[in-house]
């Protein structure tokens, strides 16, 4: 398409189109960051060197999801979207006031550990990247034949129709 910018109409259209392209990228980036899912493992454990101690009992909720109860040594997970999160902790010991904080997680990390005791003790970093050692293997079983012997085999895939029609 030849873009000439002679008339004001054409100029206006050109600007609007540019704006739309920008909008396209903005929306893409927005859903990319905002929709990005992270799995946060919430940890309530003592430090190895006992530099901090697990909380005796608490309810933790992230981003006003349903809260979960934690006893010392517990670990549970929450799946969240986006990078900025709010954590709310209410303690079983009613004398301690509720704790609220916000934190950000790095965009590129799928799974992290949030250590509540560390956070409460103000030790940085209280969030660490988590790498599951056996993660890859769990998917191994799904593997099916990945190459086809012939034309006909290739189209045998079509008989996976059940899948397709969804019966």
């Amino acid at each position: 398409m030849k873009i000439s910018l002679k008339t004001p109409k054409e100029k206006r259209r050109f600007l609007i189109r540019i704006a739309l392209v920008l909008l396209y990228f903005c929306v893409t980036i927005f859903v990319l960051f905002n929709g990005r899912g992270h799995t946060i493992l919430i940890d309530n454990k003592d430090a190895d060197d006992l530099s901090y101690e697990a909380v005796d009992g608490m309810e933790v909720s992230i981003d006003s999801q349903e809260s979960a109860e934690y006893w010392p040594g517990d670990r549970d997970k929450a799946v969240v979207r986006g990078q900025k999160h709010k954590i709310r902790i209410s303690f079983f010991d009613e004398e301690i006031p509720e704790f609220e904080a916000t934190f950000t997680v790095p965009f590129s990390v799928d799974m992290l550990i949030l250590s509540v005791p560390k956070m409460l003790a103000g030790i940085e970093p209280f969030i660490e990247t988590f790498v599951a050692p056996d993660f890859v293997d769990t998917f191994e079983k799904e593997e099916s034949a990945e190459s086809f012997d012939s034309f006909e085999d290739m189209y045998d895939g079509l008989q996976q129709e059940d899948y397709y029609i969804g019966s």
């Binding site: 034309f151 006909e152 189209y155 045998d156 079509l158 008989q159």
Partner: peptide, 8 residues
């Protein structure tokens, strides 16, 4: 379904 795509 063997003969389905044999024409190709």
């Amino acid at each position: 379904t063997g003969p389905l795509y044999m024409a190709f």
